[in-house]
Design a protein around this nucleic acid. Structure first.
Length: 132
DNA sequence: CTCTTGACCACTC
DNA sequence: AGAGTGGCCAAGA
């Protein structure tokens, strides 16, 4: 398949993000069936700059902490543009530019109130190389 | 071809 | 809470 095919896989996932919602690079990679490839999602979206696309790239943020996401674009202008677009969609960003996934996250996560016992059970077991 | 950087993520100190 | 570290893989210099 053509090289762009792989990116298309990510784009397809991003396109599923409804307006007014946000997701994270890692989540996109996971939904695309390529866990651990969050970085590639970033590259794929970066490749969209200035090109004709219908990918809501602004709805993809970097994960910040447990239930928060944050704009990960290094370029100040790109980051500003993303923030503006998100606000226009109704996504409320914190003073620090963070978004609460519990409110705007996608897909809708199961509301998991922090249990009294610190049984975290390690949500991401990406220790394995995932190869072979 | 090697080295560096990157729109990442999670763990550790 | 902030900084450092390791890991993943791709693209650009």
């Amino acid at each position: 398949m053509d090289p762009a095919g792989r990116f298309e896989l990510f784009y397809r996932v991003v396109r599923r993000v409804p307006r007014g919602r946000v997701t994270t690079y890692g989540q996109v990679a996971l939904l695309a069936g390529m866990p651990g490839y969050a970085r590639h999602v970033g590259h794929a979206l970066a490749a969209l700059r200035g090109t004709a696309h219908r990918v809501p790239w602004q709805r993809v943020l970097g994960k910040d902490g447990r239930g928060w996401a944050r704009i990960a674009i290094l370029d100040a202008m790109g980051a500003g543009a993303q923030r503006a677009l998100l606000e226009r969609e109704g996504v409320a960003l914190d003073a620090r530019g963070r978004v609460r996934l519990a409110d705007f996250g996608w897909p809708t996560l199961t509301p998991r109130p922090a249990p009294a016992s610190r049984a975290r059970s390690r949500p991401r077991t990406r220790g394995s190389t995932g190869r072979s």
